[in-house]
Amino acid sequence: MSTPVTTKPAAAPATVKGGPGPAQRLTSYMPLIALAVLLAALTIADPEFLTQRSLTAASRTAAPLIVLAAGATLVVLCGGIDLSIAALASVSTVFLALWLPELGALATPAVILVAAAIGALQGVAHVLLRIPSFIVTLGGMSIFSAVALVVSDAGTVRVVDDSTIAWLDLYVGGYVPMSLTVAVIVVVLISVVLKVTPLHSWISATGYSESAARLAGTPVDLVKIGAFCVSGACAGLAAVMLVSRQFSGSPTMADNLLLPAVAAIVVGGTAITGGHGSVWRSLAGALVVTLLRVGLPIVGVPSAYEQILYGAIIVAAVALTLDRSKVLIIK
């Protein structure tokens, strides 16, 4: 049986879209829009908010969060996750407080180096033992907490002489907190280093498609270890900022920064699936999270809602920024 063959051309294959669709474009500006909306809403709720004094205070609280989020962003860009940043920062505050009397000015670089080394160690465990990054860092989280408890004997370690870290409490030009300046410098530094070296394409390739990146000769393992190392170093720097503000180190000091940091990364629009995103986005995300944190009491919402909000934000932001083309099966 033969059917007349019509010479209708086959339906044009779905063409690859030239640019991002409207929805994608909207999500890529999401952090900036959220930032503007929040600022406007807070100013309406309390006209006092847009004064130099409260903005300075808000940006001081933002600094450690920005640093933590910026470091962990690199791990997320590689397609992994670092759940240990907060615990690592906590144990680093204890180390710093204990080392300041003996090492003085050298304590700061020492703590950052140790934190970087610990981060790199987690990266090595992830890469060599082939353990999923969230398990390595979840394990790391509880190990660091234990170390912090043992070293500090489960108490706060006071800093008597903080002259060597007090520079973080200064103000640039009288208004901009030094800690915020340092945080922004870190973000600039990371993004410039990524731009001028092949690192950016290596990280993106690892995040977008690890197998392809491997076949193309990308040093995937080293890139991942490097990302964890930077994430650790950032946790160490965040610890220095926290100690300079609180004049003490404590085994749980930074623990409540994990959720805000993860929220900052995903609200910024960095896809949890890897590849897509940047440290600038996390900077914007960290500012959004800080505004929410500072803003809730201004609007009169009890602080218990803060946690609920973080939870909702994380789920919503991940849902919006997820790269659905890549993961067919979500576990």
Partner: peptide
């Protein structure tokens, strides 16, 4: 997980925060 396609470790991290918030309330 099923409808928003949020990977479970993220979804449950969020739900845990919500649970703690509700408990605090």
């Amino acid at each position: 997980l099923v409808f928003l396609k949020v990977p479970s470790f993220m979804a449950t991290l969020g739900v845990s925060a919500v649970g703690l918030g509700v408990a605090t309330l």
